[in-house]
Design a protein around this nucleic acid. Sequence first.
DNA 1: AGTTAAACCTGGTTGC
DNA 2: TGCAACCAGGTTTAAC
Length: 291
Amino acid sequence: MPELPEVEVTRRGIAGPLRGARVLYARLGKPLRWPLGCPTETLAGWHIGEVSRRGKYLWLPLSSAAASEPSAGAGAGTAANGTQGGLLLHLGMSGSLALLRDAPAPGPHDHFDLVTDRGTLRLNDPRRFGAVVWSLALHTPPASTLLRHLGPEPFDPLLTPEAFHARLQQRRAPIKAVLLAGDVVVGAGNIYACEALFQAGIHPALRADRISRPRAARLLAALRSTLARALDLGGSTLRDFTDVHGASGAYQAEAAVYGRAGQPCLRCGSLLRRRVQAQRSSYFCAICQRR
DNA sequence: AGTTAAACCTGGTTGC
DNA sequence: TGCAACCAGGTTTAAC
């Protein structure tokens, strides 16, 4: 489900409603990818700040009290005055967040609830590759450890075509694998990596360091337009992605190559192919995408 | 050092 | 209909 556009759509859906909300309590379901890292009681009493995103991670900053509101006391399970922390969330392969005004009883795949005075933030994740991790700050472990290897954001103005090309020059792996690795640029998952490569006319098996400067510039532009388009459409919905309001995205109808093996290329009409790279399916047109 | 497999899980679809 | 095999939006960890 979630690549960068879906995560960003999720962030936009929850940031406003949760800004300033007070955490009442938290509930855990089955184990996720990593343990929470603190007792659920620790989360009670905090105030949620501005939800941000880094790559496909979401960061829910928590502070001990609203700006001008002194904490009455730092009893057990209550945040001490002046302290801060936060939750680093990842939706994994099958996760989604919902913000529920009146949350029904948790279902078998609801593995984390953050109950606030503005509603319940609920993580549903059948495959449980997702995670919710407590960290004192983004720049301290465990959050900093998880974010350490992430490359620049795709829309970072510092990521110029020249800088992108320079980064690709240092990698010998296939460009598709490099995009998925997320250390040259974050945000592209399997769908958008395939789509961007098609749009740029680059074969997914081409070694990253063999990509010329103009082609790198074209790929960066393609990646940006692909992600921006998906954002506009509310995220992709190949199967079951829904935003926090339960609405599905509309990008699926836009995919030119992803999931279309055996069907004609929209540009040249030849049959699209599928090949496995880095343990993931790559969909591409062998005519339009050159090595 | 840098790239490639194995691992974590459940559920839906396909094929015999 | 039953059941095995395969597939799925991600990323860390261990192994070549």
